[in-house]
């Protein structure tokens, strides 16, 4: 075969091969999260959960804490409070405000005002009450079951308790060192 014909063949193969380049791999038949899917009537590939499904949450850990009693079933420590504060800031502050007075930004924009978390009535209710309100909703407050995991709801409950304590703690429970710090702050005011 002459060199010229060889080159011609090579060129032809190259043209055919590059003609095969298209972007199927960019959009593969697999479904991405929340991708539309015409197979189902509601058009979504992500199927809603069946009733009675129990989440493994967080993955691999023991089942989420659930208690039949009214007290917080999780050990209340610094880590739980820190987690509760973080989650409170994300999910609760829009309405309840950063310190629980019920004057969050969404309330200022017209949402019905929730009661303060610092009332005697709410301070007297068991931990379970706050957990249940987050889980099931209360009045105009929707259920946060899908946004906040069970353990996090208990963590937020613990943080709400800390918030309530912050307004009603007596100076007598402080150590001498903390007390002098408090006095210094008071004096500075």
């Amino acid at each position: 075969m002459s060199r010229f014909r060889l080159a011609l063949w090579f060129g032809a193969v190259a043209v055919v091969a590059t003609g095969g380049c298209h972007s199927d791999m960019y959009d593969q038949p697999k479904v991405e999260p929340l991708e539309a899917n015409e197979f189902f009537d509601d058009g979504r590939s992500a199927r809603p959960l069946l009733t009675g499904v129990v989440p493994r949450d967080p993955v691999g850990a023991k089942p989420a804490a659930s208690a039949t009693g009214t007290a917080n079933p999780l050990p209340v420590n610094q880590a739980l409070l820190a987690r509760g504060m973080q989650r409170y800031m994300i999910y609760c502050t829009p309405c309840h405000g950063r310190i629980g007075d019920g004057d969050g930004m969404i309330v200022r924009r017209g949402f019905r005002q929730p009661p303060t978390l610092h009332s005697d009535r709410l301070r007297g209710l068991p931990d379970r009450h706050f957990y249940d309100v987050m889980t099931e909703g209360f009045g105009v407050m929707p259920s946060y079951r899908k946004q906040i995991s069970s353990d996090d709801r208990w963590a937020i409950t613990a943080y709400i308790r800390a918030l309530q304590l912050s307004r009603h703690a007596s100076p007598e429970v402080l150590t001498a060192e903390e007390r002098s710090k408090l006095d210094a702050t008071e004096a500075a005011r």
Binding site: E32, G110, F111, P142, K146
Partner: peptide, 21 residues
């Protein structure tokens, strides 16, 4: 925080506030 996909909120989450606002 935990998943490959960040998540686009369900309509219910919009309605948390926009049921009233």
């Amino acid at each position: 925080e935990n998943s490959a996909f960040a998540g686009v909120p369900a309509t219910e989450i919009c309605m948390n506030c926009h049921s009233q606002i």
